[in-house]
Design a protein around this nucleic acid. Structure first.
Length: 819
DNA sequence: AGCACGCCGACT
DNA sequence: GTCGGCGTGCTC
């Protein structure tokens, strides 16, 4: 057989069941390199699809081999190591190669940047011409620029002068006659932004978009971007997709999108506060640092757990290690949970690392994120500080990856492929022989276990930095309150403590351990509860817009005052922060109170917090978001209103999460000079988790929890694979689920899988059976997440998808999912 | 998944 | 005769 130049591609159009590297012929004269995106024909209809070049080589020119149509990137966007990472992610997370590639690369890469070229400031007409007179293409460009009044978009120039203008412009910028800027850079400084988000579920919006894909391609692109980016500013949406404001207005009219205002989050300027003071470590920090340093210098891809109590100065150790990594010519990534990346933290890093550090946080716009990616890729950056997705930063030659508060669930991606940052970090460390440092005040049970088993190295910081004593913790038994006739949310004990603080002029933080503001409406007459028309859940009432919303599919409707069934008056039920607020106002009339929860607009948070600190408002009431990273001198009391709420959730992480949360909340008290107090209200004061949290005793918590995990065969003793089977016809879904279970049961008996003694359970309905008109059932595989098991599950999944019996039914697998 | 091919029944 | 229903099979 004749041979030819062949490229192996990851193709976007290939679904999971048939995904593999596809061979394509590289046409004569086409320059293709590994890591570039290309356009290819795919399938019987030869529809255009995007692909990424994984490898190039001589290969068999078999009949039916198709050609690459065009190359989409001038330079490659993925290097060898990133391709290996994508290959690994495919088998680890049961996704397609292209899904993995999309996850690794920044979203901005998929949208066209409108590059604007303008004459360099201070350049005269004659001087500009003199600089390029011998090159006709350049002169033409200049003419066009002058005709346009000094600046023009790249797309306009391409229209007039063709593709040749790209190289001409390169010459012009090289000579300093013309400068290039992207529109995003000019947008900086906006005070408020008009934001756009989908008003429908992503699936529904895509369906509408797909149906008119050909007739309205711009709308299609706009909706696709909204599906992947969530909320995004209107200008950015137009910018990336070429949509006009009319397009957006039409989409709003059609009910596909909605608008809102958001205050621009200030991205802190890199405050060049001169030379940062050298870090002085105490004895304990020094010891941990020495140990970690020698691991890092060993270059053997080790993992270590740094268990340091709140306020023990883990960050100093991180910074010292990063400094040493840089000194030995290596680079470092520092990861923090979603909510923790505060301006203070960023200032701290930029004072130590100046322009060599790149921050990747949620306030960055798509274009800014993309710019950071380019800076990192070009090698202008040696340290990356960021949240989850920063683990994919294109930083080479890693010496160190730090994951602060490694137990946080925000390290697991909530959309597929649902990678865990820790796993990706391990893979990257293995590639570069880097040290993975997991830091935490309350490590995940898994990590603590591996540290105790010697799989991870183990270091401790037991002393709080300036020897501050821990807050005094009191438990309030809510059962007693009910018995003594207190029907409210605030126990007598907590009430007394708040009063004391009011007298002393000290501040209190009250924490409601509940996700968002989950209240619903209920008819007082007939008991009717408004439910989502597409999902099997009650709708949540949002006071901010007076609407009922579904958390699963995004459905929203106006809330009625009266019951649509019987005309009775609708009442609000559920313990939300608003209800607590009412109670507090009745208990402490005239006392200043701030409430912060999912209902308060996201832009407001920082203002609220700074008001709380500056104006010394006595009480701050909030959800999850007040628990993390807040440091206020004058706060001496913390109240946890319902400690049990997160405890009895059907999830193997519930105890760990509750312990971690309680520890963090309690740690908010007494950060200043005065010793703090904490009141934990609970219905189960004898519960091990509550007691060990109250005593701030991690070891006690760990011992009881690890015993439980062993008995129940939960991680780290086994891995839980959840296969979710979904479709619109409930009985068909159930039948398919049963077939899948039988198949898996059969496979679980085969060697070598059999030896790890896997169990197959289910099918059971998912916690919310119906989401978006699709019924979801789950099958659980309890076993070991090893290569053999993954290969088996992958094989079974593919077989299932290709089986004609399972038409219209989809299935996906998650391992140790947190939800 | 998404698309073409193909083999049947009801139309201009 | 042909248009279009959906069942079947393949994707370099």
């Amino acid at each position: 057989m004749e041979t030819a130049n062949i490229a192996k591609l990851a193709v976007a159009a290939a679904p999971y069941a048939i995904d593999k590297p596809y061979d394509y012929l590289i046409p004569e004269g086409m320059e293709v390199s590994v890591g570039v995106r290309v356009s290819v024909p795919f399938g019987r209809g030869n529809r255009r699809s995007e692909g990424v070049v994984l490898a190039i080589g001589e290969g068999e020119k078999f009949p039916g081999l198709k050609q690459i149509l065009s190359v989409l990137d001038r330079e490659s966007v993925l290097d060898r190591q990133e391709i290996d990472l994508a290959l690994w992610m495919r088998q680890r997370y049961f996704c397609t190669l292209y899904d993995a590639v999309k996850t690794i690369l920044p979203a901005g890469l998929w949208y066209q940047f409108r590059e604007v070229y303008r004459l360099a400031p201070g350049i005269e007409y004659t001087a500009a011409y003199a600089a390029v007179q011998e090159i006709p293409a350049c002169a033409e460009m200049l003419q066009l620029l002058f005709a346009k009044g000094g600046s023009a978009e790249l797309s306009e120039m391409k229209e007039v002068c063709g593709e040749g203008c790209v190289s001409a412009l390169k010459t012009l910028t090289g000579k300093g006659v013309v400068v290039c800027e992207s529109r995003a850079q000019r947008k900086i400084g906006d005070k408020t932004r008009r934001m756009v988000e989908l008003a429908l579920s992503a699936e529904e919006a895509m369906e509408i978009a797909e149906s008119r894909r050909r007739a309205a391609p711009v709308r299609y692109e706009a909706i696709r971007l909204l599906c992947s980016a969530g909320r995004i500013s209107a200008s950015e949406l137009c910018y990336f997709t070429g949509a006009s404001s009319q397009t957006l207005r039409a989409l709003e009219k059609a009910g596909v999108v909605r608008f809102s205002q958001e205050e621009t989050l200030r991205v802190p300027e890199i405050a060049q506060s001169g030379e940062a003071a050298p870090i002085v470590l105490n004895e304990e920090q020094e010891e941990a640092y020495r140990g970690l340093l020698s691991l890092m210098e060993g270059g053997r891809a080790e993992a270590a757990l740094l268990h340091g109590v709140t306020g023990s100065g883990k960050t100093q150790v991180y910074i010292r290690l990063v400094q040493e990594a840089l000194r030995s010519g290596k680079n470092a990534i520092v990861l923090v949970p979603e909510i923790i990346l505060t301006p203070q933290m960023m200032e701290r890093f930029s004072s130590y690392f100046g322009a060599e550090v790149a921050m990747l946080h949620s306030a960055l716009r798509l274009s800014e994120r993309y710019d950071q990616w380019k800076r990192i890729r070009r090698g202008e950056v040696r340290v990356v500080l960021g949240t989850r997705s920063a683990i994919f930063a294109p930083l080479r030659n890693l010496g160190l990856i730090v994951m602060d508060e490694e137990q946080e669930s925000s390290y697991q991606s909530e959309n597929p492929p649902r990678y865990h940052t820790r796993d990706v970090a391990k893979f990257r460390c293995a590639q570069d022989g880097a040290l993975l440092l997991l830091g935490s005040a309350t490590p995940s049970v898994e990590s603590a276990h591996w540290a105790r088993e010697g799989v991870y190295h183990h270091f401790f910081l037991r002393r709080r930095y300036n020897e501050k004593s821990l807050p005094r913790v009191m438990l309030a038994d809510l059962k007693d309150e009910v018995r003594s006739g207190n029907s409210g949310v605030i126990s007598a004990l907590l009430r007394r403590e708040i009063e004391q603080n009011l007298q002393r002029g000290e501040q209190s933080i009250l924490f409601l351990n509940r996700r968002g503001n989950s209240r619903m409406l209920l008819c007082g007459e007939c008991g009717f509860v408004p439910e989502c028309p597409r999902c099997s859940t009650a709708l949540t009432y949002h006071s901010a817009n007076g609407r009922l919303m579904c958390h699963y599919c995004g459905h929203s409707e106006k809330a009625n005052e009266t019951c649509p069934m019987c005309g009775g008056i609708m009442k609000r039920v559920g313990v939300g922060t608003q209800k607590v607020e009412e109670e507090l106002r009745a208990l402490f009339p005239g006392v200043g109170l701030l409430r912060m929860d999912a209902d308060t607009a996201s832009g407001e948070h920082e203002t609220l917090l700074s008001r709380f600190e500056r104006e010394k408002i006595p009480i701050l009431l909030g959800t999850q978001m007040v628990a993390k990273g807040l440091d206020f001198e004058n706060v001496t009391l913390v109240g946890v209103l319902a400690a049990d709420l997160s405890l009895y959730v059907d999830n193997y992480h519930a105890a760990e999460r509750t312990f971690s949360l309680l520890t963090q909340v309690v740690g908010r008290a007494g950060r200043g000079e005065k010793t703090g107090r904490a009141v934990i209200q609970t219905y189960t004061p004898g519960n091990e988790v509550i007691v060990s949290a109250a005593e701030q005793d991690y070891d006690r918590f760990f011992e009881s929890e690890i015993r439980m995990r062993r008995i129940r065969r939960y991680p780290p003793f086994a891995d839980l694979f959840t296969c979710t089977i979904s479709g619109t016809d409930e009985t068909a879904v159930l039948r398919a689920a049963v077939r899948l279970r039988e198949e898996l049961k059969l496979e679980s008996q085969q060697e070598p899988i059999r030896s790890s003694d896997p169990e197959v359970l289910g099918p059971a309905p998912a916690p919310v059976v119906k989401v978006d008109n699709r019924y979801r059932y789950r099958i659980l595989w309890v076993g070991k997440n090893d290569k053999a098991t993954r290969a088996l599950l992958s094989y079974t999944l593919k077989k299932f998808a290709l089986d004609r019996q399972n038409r219209g039914i989809s299935v996906f697998v998650d391992c140790n999912a947190l939800e």
